[in-house]
């Protein structure tokens, strides 16, 4: 069973969408495995001005994406680094053991973003 927080984010996912002129795009997972997340960020003055995503996956994958977007939007890039797999799972009041990899995906997507963003801005 999922927590109420997971169900809330699954039923009403926040910040869904794509950013046309994104500064960074992070993609993790694979539809073959049943999960895939694409994150888009817009950065201004070292802050994540906007975070959006599209997710193919289960309840946990959708809730994690939504939570990650919520936890990172408006934060500095440095602050966003604290959004780890564990932090996301805790913010969702826990995830079933077998679904922990979903929160890993969310954190991974974001770390890809950090790297992407640090190295070069995607035009």
């Amino acid at each position: 069973m999922y927590s109420q927080e997971v169900m809330d984010h699954f039923s009403n996912p926040r910040n869904v969408g794509e950013i046309e002129d994104a500064d960074g795009i992070g993609e993790v997972g694979n539809p073959v495995c049943g999960d895939m997340m694409t994150f888009y960020i817009k950065v201004k003055d070292d802050k994540l001005e906007d975070v959006k995503y599209k997710t193919f996956g289960c309840v946990a994958a959708i809730a994690v994406s939504s939570k990650v977007s919520e936890m990172t939007r408006g934060k500095t890039l440095e602050e966003a680094k604290s959004v780890t797999k564990k932090a996301v799972a805790e913010a969702l009041d826990g995830l079933p053991k077998e679904k922990m990899h979903c929160s890993n995906l969310g954190a991974q997507a974001l770390s890809i973003l950090h790297v992407t963003n640090a190295v070069h801005k995607i035009p």
Binding site: M7, F10, P31, G34, G57, C58, V59
Partner: peptide
Amino acid sequence: AIEGEALIY
């Protein structure tokens, strides 16, 4: 393009 568990929920 969608996943079954999310669909069932």
